[in-house]
Amino acid sequence: MPARANGERSPAHYDVRLIQVKPAKGRYRENLAQTSEAFAQIAEEGTPDLIVLPEAAMTGYFLEGAVYDLAQPAKAFATDLARAWREGAGDRDVELCCGFYENDDGTYYNSALYLRVGAKGHEIVHVHRKMFLPTYGMFDEERFLSRGRRLQTFETRIGRMAMLICEDVWHAIMPTIAAIKGARVLLVPSAAPGRGIEGDSELTSITHWREILRASATEHGVYVLYAGLTGFEGGKGMTGSSCIIDPRGHVTVKAPEIGECVVSGTIDLREADLARASLPLLGDLGAVLPDLLLDDELPLPKGRP
């Protein structure tokens, strides 16, 4: 959605960027420096409201035991990311979302950080710890990492959001809960190794991903910002395809599957309002949800374990 014809920006209208990267495996400082260059390039065209980077964007995804070499406290990562922004773009205000491996006093997580950076410093707005750790086939996350225990939404300059890391969003209940908790924008940092060579024009896993993301957007009337790693890690090719999906399910801009790039687009929260007005599924769910959750056939624990 372009800015208004008179050049004045609607208060509901925001500029966002996705950075699709191919990090050098394990070279954290080198990848941070590259990210800073990408920030500088973005800032040349003006400062967006939000920049989203993929899962494990500063280290690469498949680390096995090296995750213990590279994971760090959220505070330390926030400081590094804020410095990378300032070195690339100066003192301008921005909000950043980026996946990283977190070391929380010896407990390790696959996390995503939401960071507010400004002239006066930086502030961690939220850290989401991946809840669904793929541990099958080529994936072995739960061997090395602990599961996050809570899906929270948080307030940003764009409105209420949630971060869902990769497999988190494959479980329909996750975007559902995020939307019920007020999220109007879902951020999905991801590292998706491609597979399936029988598709029409792309790997079948890419098609599957887009179907999942579009379904989330349309069911709940939310924007979905998907930032994917690209490039091969030991023969496993990350499928890029970073994209923005509007609340009616349209892919408004999409990166190719192969190659680093910046994806530039917009969020207009009026679109979310209109989408929810014309397809009020979230409102319907709010009415029915108590009945669903109170169903005593559901294997729900009594209180938090």
Partner: peptide, 22 residues
């Protein structure tokens, strides 16, 4: 089945990444 166009695109990227980049 196989879509050879998709497989070729992917394998070219694989070879470039594994040899030149890595």
């Amino acid at each position: 089945p196989i879509n050879p166009e998709v497989a070729t695109r992917w394998l070219e990227a694989f070879l470039r990444d594994e040899l030149i980049e890595r």
